[in-house]
Design a protein around this nucleic acid. Sequence first.
DNA 1: CATGAATGAGCTTTCATTCAT
DNA 2: GATGAATGAAAGCTCATTCAT
Lengths: 200, 200, 200, 200
Amino acid sequence: MEPTTAPASPDRRRELLDTAAEVFAAQGYNATTVRQIADAAGMLAGSLYYHFDSKESMVDEILAAFLDELWAGYDAVLEAGLGPRETIEALVTESFREIDRHRAAVAIYQKEARYLATQPRFGYLTESRRKFERAWLGTLERGVAEGVFRADLDLRLAYRFLRDTVWVAASWYRPEGRHSPEEIARQYLAMVLDGIALPS
Amino acid sequence: MEPTTAPASPDRRRELLDTAAEVFAAQGYNATTVRQIADAAGMLAGSLYYHFDSKESMVDEILAAFLDELWAGYDAVLEAGLGPRETIEALVTESFREIDRHRAAVAIYQKEARYLATQPRFGYLTESRRKFERAWLGTLERGVAEGVFRADLDLRLAYRFLRDTVWVAASWYRPEGRHSPEEIARQYLAMVLDGIALPS
Amino acid sequence: MEPTTAPASPDRRRELLDTAAEVFAAQGYNATTVRQIADAAGMLAGSLYYHFDSKESMVDEILAAFLDELWAGYDAVLEAGLGPRETIEALVTESFREIDRHRAAVAIYQKEARYLATQPRFGYLTESRRKFERAWLGTLERGVAEGVFRADLDLRLAYRFLRDTVWVAASWYRPEGRHSPEEIARQYLAMVLDGIALPS
Amino acid sequence: MEPTTAPASPDRRRELLDTAAEVFAAQGYNATTVRQIADAAGMLAGSLYYHFDSKESMVDEILAAFLDELWAGYDAVLEAGLGPRETIEALVTESFREIDRHRAAVAIYQKEARYLATQPRFGYLTESRRKFERAWLGTLERGVAEGVFRADLDLRLAYRFLRDTVWVAASWYRPEGRHSPEEIARQYLAMVLDGIALPS
DNA sequence: CATGAATGAGCTTTCATTCAT
DNA sequence: GATGAATGAAAGCTCATTCAT
């Protein structure tokens, strides 16, 4: 019979951050008030400041944790020595898994990254974006060189196409939905790699 | 005896709305203060209220004007009696033209529609989203029925894929960029219809 | 028949700063709320922010204006080529005049300078204190060298004695009081220069 | 069976009060947070409330203890039947000894007494000030009557001059400094009684 | 005795909006 | 048409204080 007492500190933080992420994702960072987060967490606005320095430091922690995990997955893929097509497949699948696990964080990242990145504190967002571009664009270039991808495309356009295509899914994805992240990845890859048209 | 120096009122409104749209797109609706808009327009915050009822009515007018124009184009395409593939091609091209003309409005729509749609005043956003879905999803279904599009796809997924793919472009598109909207449309269609992979 | 309209901007600022100075002097900077200042000025707390950036910038302006005026007077004295005793007399008189004109500002300076000086923004307070010390201590040293002042004193102690003696007066001085600033200066100088004891 | 490790409670209180006094003196009562005191004492803010009722009761105890000790010394001097000049000398010396022993408390008294005295709880501050005035002013008057002090001074001014002159020293005094309290008293008395100027 | 977590009141500040001129 | 000054509501945050453990 568990006592209904307060959980230990790091767990509590995580709990609160998850709550905050949900609210941020639903309403937008700026449109979310600290009071709304506190309400959702069942406490008073001021009480949040026992755990966090500021509203800003909450998004900060949410985004940083997400990017850490994301890059752990990406790095594993990139160091696996796969061919270009298999790398793209693995990156897309990894991305949808990340969306599945951290939907709220991904949605926040999508909507607020550009705005937040203007502040020095969030410099790592810009950094991450660059690393991201190098990884995807590099793979595409390799694929063209190796004759696996079409040569008649503007690769920067293709990169943006891929990137957006994957991440925007966070805005509508629901974990309890019909498809598993792997299934969604498979469908996306089918479209991205081979197109929606039947070869005539 | 009207003085000829005073600018026609509707022009001034348009001018101010364009300015506001630019700022909204750059900073987000909530993060934008009325004063920032006024600064950008070279006037004081209070003076904007001679032209507009409220900050809300500014986004309202911006979005409504954009959607009006968009649907004029879409409706023309949908009533032209084209085949499914040609319809998709025309809709995508039309969309990129719209992005070219109303980049700021499209960017605002992308970022804020979900949040704004919760208010009754912006009910037309939800309505438009539904019409949108009917148009695209219907065309896809027709394409599958006619054997022009692949039958092994979850069409709702494909719809979202198409929709996001096109509109997210507003977040990075720059009118002075390398490619014309038609050229971008062509590239996107190449990827979407036939995939980025070379047929093996 | 004057209309009871709002006065022009720079005057209004001065008015508000005078009000603020009075409240700060009476209650202490930290113990004073922006609301109290606004109340005293007959407006709402938020309205003060039309005129000033922050509570801090209010003290800043108050103190800076006071020190500017003070140094104008001091510099005139120091450049007049007076003997040490006459210089001390003139500085003391000038100080009491300043207390008479800017009682609140002087009181704030006395109570809050040390605390405020820890912030970079108020660096000029430290600077002013140093300049102050050079002026007074230098005059005392000159006086000892010329045989006008006693040689058996620790001059740093004497400097502090003089300095405090003069400025603390701001904490009890009332402009409508019995004595004019010049008369108070005369009495202080009598005590400081010749002592309160009768020569035996 | 009391464990011998637990420190006697009154000692701990004293220790904490000394710590608190130091912080209050350095930052001002209002600008000091309970947490800063707790930090300085190596405990958490809430823990202080095991020892004290409130922040207010801390200053209260600090000031009351200081005034108790001060008046013990003053009363001894006043009842010793000394002449006016010797009384002044003894009071000044006693005061500097008090500054030496309770620098922080004296500094707090100097800066905060006026503000605190507005609350009923600190009524003894006002009382003490009155007693103080009677003691010093009475001695001065006696001195004038007996021909020991100059008759051409406004005695209320002289009183304030003496009072401030002595106590403000608490704001710069450092116990480890060059001069003993007795030496400082001697120098102050030399200035106050006989002036800084050489008799011409 | 001390901690960890929370409360609740109040603070400074922001900002959309109003309105007399 | 625009300005200058103000309003009022609400925001983010601070802090003395409480209390179960």
